[in-house]
């Protein structure tokens, strides 16, 4: 039997220690004086101050009648909090902020609230100011291309109707004008765009809509093994690209007029910018700057 890796052993122990130190809000359905749903023996439980819950546990005679409205009420309460936060944010962005706040911007208010359809998303503290691209405000474009070994592949078109506001017309341009928060801000990623055009963008492989798959280690014509890279250039800058060698789907489309090459190239080969870059200056659907 193989001896356990010391790091794995340490990791198991550390995670257990941190988990044991977790403060679990009290569950009133549990016997008095215990943490809610705590599966450890009483001696191992942290002596934490109970935190009130949005969704009470369902207990005793009332639980059948109460469960439905409690869940609904919890979702509604969270939605209300998010909506209030959204109003505050819009006020600040309009320069009509409550209190003195930061400098006002001229951006129009977002037409969408940041709540999900269930209203159950709780925005973390400090996340109420939307990051660009902002839903129903920004309209960005990025030039992109898929480069394999030594040549660019034909530009891809959408695999489905664009429901969220990120698409391509087969011209090597990514159009980003989010209709909702699912592709706005930090969710405007290469992964979101890849989904839209039916491109499989894994950590180590690239799968085209027709099923052709390029994997790390596959040989280029010269025999050198290819590896997945994503090269990005800042808008209108001729500087060297930033190269992402892992988590390519998480690469953000973080500004208007970005240039992106998704590449399967041998080690040491710097992917070139895509041929669609000049198209950025010939677009007919460029909205006037809204921000």
């Amino acid at each position: 039997m193989e001896p356990a890796d010391p790091l794995e052993t340490r990791l198991r122990r550390s995670l257990r220690v941190v988990a044991d130190a977790t403060v679990v809000p009290a569950n009133p359905a549990a016997p008095a004086g215990t943490s809610g749903a705590d599966d450890r023996p009483p001696a191992d439980r942290p002596s934490a101050e109970p935190v009130p819950l949005l969704l009470d546990p369902l207990d005793g005679r009332r639980r059948r009648a109460a469960s439905g409205w409690r869940l609904t009420a919890a979702a509604a309460l969270v939605a209300l909090v998010v909506a209030v936060a959204s109003v505050v944010t819009i006020g600040r962005r309009d320069g009509t902020s409550f209190g003195s706040g930061g400098p006002a911007t001229t951006a129009p208010p977002s037409a969408t609230a940041p709540a999900t359809s269930s209203g159950a998303v709780i925005s973390p503290p400090g996340s109420v100011t939307p990051e660009p691209p902002v839903a129903n405000v920004d309209h960005w474009h990025a030039a992109y291309g898929i480069y394999v070994c030594d040549h660019f592949l034909p530009d891809l078109v959408d695999a489905r109707a664009d429901a969220h506001g990120i698409h391509s017309h087969g011209d090597g341009i990514i159009h980003v004008h989010p209709f909702d928060d699912s592709v706005a801000g930090r969710r405007a990623t290469l992964g979101a765009f890849a989904d839209q055009i039916g491109l499989g963008l894994g950590d180590t492989e690239l799968r085209l809509p027709d099923g052709t798959t390029y994997r790390n280690g596959d040989p280029c014509p010269g025999g050198q093994p290819m590896a997945l890279r994503v090269a990005t250039w800042k808008a209108d800058q001729a500087s060297a690209p930033a190269i992402a060698t892992r988590d390519p789907a998480d690469v953000r489309i973080s500004e208007d007029r970005m240039v992106i090459t998704i590449a399967m190239v041998p080690e040491g080969v710097s992917p070139p910018p895509p041929p669609s870059v000049p198209t950025l200056d010939q677009l007919s659907d460029v909205a006037p700057p809204a921000r």
């Binding site: 977790t22 679990v24 569950n27 943490s35 809610g36 749903a37 546990p57």
Partner: peptide, 10 residues
Amino acid sequence: YRDRYGPMVR
């Protein structure tokens, strides 16, 4: 809820 709330918070 009773069984999994605590473990899921952790």
